[in-house]
Amino acid sequence: MVRLTINGKPHDVDVDPSTPLLWAIRENVGLTGTKYGCGIAICGACTVHLDGVATRSCAMAVSDAVGKEITTIEGLAQNGTLHRVQQAWIAHEVPQCGYCQSGMIMAAAELLKNTPKPTDADIDNAITNICRCGTFQQVRAAIHAAANA
């Protein structure tokens, strides 16, 4: 049994400690907004925040997340108000299929926390998520819009 703190709430999870954090979040806690895309920390669909740092949860053991504040896409809105990145995503109609967008949004939210007015180069460096639908043009526009919101 490991204790995880997800979106401010404690969850006691009965899993093997080597289980990837992604699967504990999805299958044991039941938060399915965080996605599986590759299982080897390349595509970014599984991105969550760990103590505020964007982290790929598919290749990290759940035991390594104990004692840390985990934020998933479901916890990004505060007091019922969507995060400015989510709002910009809606305004710019960023998602196509939408499957990779939870991870993309979590990466963008961390970028704006650290770099409030990112340049295009900052975006290129920070956003390394794969999107097979090809939403990048709208992702870039929405990040700039959120920065100026």
Binding site: K35, I90, V94
Partner: peptide
């Protein structure tokens, strides 16, 4: 605006892979 955008930015959209 296309249908379904809001659910895709909050993690609420249920894909086949999310079904329980």
């Amino acid at each position: 605006k296309r249908f379904g955008i809001a659910d895709k930015v909050t993690g609420k959209q249920v894909y086949g892979f999310d079904l329980t």
